[in-house]
Design a protein around this nucleic acid. Structure first.
Lengths: 133, 133
DNA sequence: AACTTAAAGGATAATTATTATCTTTTAATA
DNA sequence: TATTAAAAGATAATAATTATCCTTTAAGTT
C-alpha cells in the first residue's frame, strides 16, 4: 500500500489500479491534458475506457485531490493538488511549470480597490521559457 | 456609422448588423458566455444561427477585437478588448468585473526566479463581491 | 479465506459544444 | 445599380463530455 492508496482512501475514493496509475501519471508528468492522460493510461491498461478517465478526473476534482488549470489558447491540464502556486506557460513549447509567488500584495490591492473578499487566485504567466528564448 | 462600424472595418471585418449587435451586446453586458450572447442576439435577430455567433467570435478573437476570459469552475466569457487588466469573479453571484492592477513586480519576480520571458499575464481573483459578502 | 455489497470499470449511447459545408443574402465598392 | 467577395442561415459533421447499463472488484465482514 503506497502513499496514494492512503490518500485516495482518505478522500473516500477506492484505491483501484486504474486510479493509482492515474495519480502516478500525474505525479510523473506534472501537467497533463485529458487526451494525454488517456494515452498514458492506455500503456498500462490497454482496454481502459475514456469514460473511466473522465469519471475519475471529476471525482478527484470534487475531492480536491487534483486541480484543473485553465490555460489561454490551450486545453486544460490537470495536476495533483499541492501548495498554492501559479503557472508559467511557454507559448512556444507549450510546457507548463509551477512557480510559487507571494501574491499577498496584489490581492490586498485588488481587495481594497474593489471591496472584494478574495479567497483564491488563478495566475498564468505566458511567454518564453529558458530553452525557447 | 457608429464607432464599432469603423473599428470592425479597421480589423477587416464587414460591419454587418449582426456584428454590430454582437459588439453592442458585449459593450452593454461586459462579460458574456456564448450561450448568453446567443440569447441576447435572438432578441434582435430571431433567426440568427448559432454558427454565426461562433464564426464571429472566432474572427473577432483572431482580430484581437475581443478576448476570451477563462474562469475557474465556469464557462468562458468574452469581452471587448480594452486596456490590459485582471478579473474578479464572485463565487456567489458569478459576476465578473475588471480590475486594473500593476503586476510588474509579480512578473519581474517570476521572470527572475524561473528565467522566463513573460509577455502576458492572466489573473483571475475569486471570492465574494461587495454585495455578496 | 470465502461472502457480501456498494462502488468502479468497460462498452457504448446520448448529450453538449464547436466546426464545416453549402446555398442564399448582403455589405462594400466601382 | 451592378458586381463580387464575404457573411448569414440551415444543417451536417466532428469533438468533447456525460449518462446508462451491465460486469467486475475493492474492501469490509463473517
Amino acid at each position: 500500500m503506497n502513499d496514494y492508496t492512503t490518500i485516495l482512501r482518505e478522500h473516500n475514493l477506492k484505491a483501484t489500479p486504474q486510479r493509482l496509475e492515474m495519480t502516478n501519471a500525474l505525479f510523473m508528468n506534472g501537467h497533463v491534458t485529458i487526451e494525454r492522460l488517456y494515452e498514458l493510461m492506455l500503456k498500462k491498461f490497454s482496454s481502459i475506457s475514456l469514460a473511466t478517465i473522465y469519471k475519475n478526473i471529476n471525482l478527484m476534482l470534487e475531492a480536491s485531490f487534483i486541480e484543473e488549470v485553465k490555460l489561454p489558447n490551450a486545453k486544460s491540464v490537470y495536476e495533483l493538488t499541492k501548495e498554492t502556486h501559479s503557472h508559467l506557460l511557454c507559448s512556444k513549447c507549450d510546457k507548463v511549470q509551477d512557480i510559487v509567488l507571494n501574491l499577498t500584495d496584489v490581492t490586498r490591492r485588488a481587495s481594497n480597490a474593489a471591496n472584494f473578499n478574495i479567497s483564491k487566485t488563478d495566475l498564468v504567466l505566458s511567454g518564453l521559457c529558458e530553452n525557447c528564448s
